[in-house]
């Protein structure tokens, strides 16, 4: 049994890393908003999904104009991802304006904000479904395949008890783009003035506003960045996995939230770590659950596995692996 698990390890690591970085970037969107507003932005998973669809639309448009054959695929990809990121960033700002700011002004209970975010998530899902179905007759969209060159990693000849692993060129792309996004976000938050303002607002909104920080604008910027990152990841998801539908955002969003909680919500580096860890754990479970349980449980339980991790973390270490425990006062 152990030998079997070890044999598949290289492939599990590659698949887990791909999924993990996707979770990591989406988790950042949750963690940034939670850090500032103490609000679970339920709609974030659907912003991710919208990004994937906007990416698909732009890609099809460019293909229709013949760009794909005229230009290197990498440049087309960059155009697509930038457009999708800007569009979803604006969407995020719009969501904040419509659904959260009025509530903040009214000092409504947090439960209400959660409910509007569920509403927004429904509206996004259905609007995207509607547009996709109107245009193509089917809401499941298959993206044109790009970067599908296969690489073979010859682990077997180096370490004999591992099997060989394969990956697509898109895996490298996903990895590089997400690492660039994560590093630049980290620099932005820790080194720039806007980043400092964000951290200040997260720490204490009222005091920050006394220090001449425009709190509403900082919140808008936060939503823009979080959503843009989410949307860009949606494009990466589309290129890596090929098919998208309007309901991918829900489960992925929940898992990204799990990742954010795992790393300590509000903590950006924690979210990155939590995402990668959850991706690896999930792929490990998917590959090995049926071996470990002798066929009683298969890969279909991988979602259960993620939810159980979430519940366990929330019960035993609600502040996450890197968070600080907070004492609540009346």
């Amino acid at each position: 049994m152990l030998a079997h698990i070890l044999q598949n390890l290289p492939q599990v690591l590659i698949d887990g890393l791909t999924l993990g970085v996707v979770y990591a970037v989406v988790a950042i969107g949750y963690t940034m908003v939670y850090g500032i507003l103490e609000l679970i932005n339920f709609a974030h998973g659907d912003v991710f999904m919208t990004g994937a669809f906007i990416g698909a639309i732009v890609l099809f448009l460019l293909m229709g104009m013949g760009f794909l054959s005229a230009m290197p695929a990498l440049i087309v990809f960059l155009i697509v991802i930038v457009i999708a990121a800007i569009a979803t960033g604006m969407l995020g700002v719009g969501i904040e304006r419509v659904a959260y700011r009025p509530l903040r002004r009214k000092n409504a209970p947090k439960l209400i904000a959660l409910i509007t975010s569920i509403g927004i998530s429904f509206v996004l899902e259905d609007a995207v479904r509607f547009i996709a179905e109107l245009k193509t007759g089917n809401y499941i969209v298959t993206a044109p395949s790009m970067f599908n060159h296969k690489f073979n990693v010859d682990v077997h000849s180096v370490i004999p008890f591992f099997n060989n692993a394969t990956f697509q060129a898109s895996f490298l792309l996903v990895l590089i783009v997400t690492v660039v996004m994560l590093v630049s976000l980290d620099l932005f938050v820790n080194k720039t003035k806007w980043g400092m303002a964000m951290r200040a607002v997260a720490q204490d909104r009222d005091t920050a506003s006394l220090m001449t920080i425009n709190v509403n604008r900082v919140i808008s910027v936060t939503f823009f960045i979080g959503s843009a990152l989410g949307g860009a990841t949606g494009v990466l998801f589309m290129i890596q996995y090929g098919t998208i539908d309007p309901y991918i955002g829900f489960i992925l969003g929940i898992k990204a939230f799990t990742a954010a909680v795992l790393g300590g919500i509000g903590n950006i580096r924690g979210a990155m770590f939590g995402g990668v860890m959850l991706g690896l754990l999930e792929m490990f479970a998917a590959a090995n659950l049926s071996v470990i349980t002798h066929g009683a449980m298969g890969a279909e339980y991988k979602d259960v596995f993620a939810f159980i991790i979430l519940i366990l973390v929330l019960i035993f270490k609600p502040e996450g692996l890197f968070g600080k425990a907070v004492v609540e006062k009346v």
């Binding site: 509530l103 509007t116 429904f122 509206v123 479904r129």
Partner: peptide, 24 residues
């Protein structure tokens, strides 16, 4: 009228809007 427009399929949208409007 395209089948995508059929109100039966629009449930998510309608209930999402109801949630938002009533919560706000």
């Amino acid at each position: 009228i395209p089948p995508a427009l059929s109100p039966e399929k629009m449930q998510l949208l309608i209930f999402g809007l109801l949630l938002i409007i009533f919560a706000l």
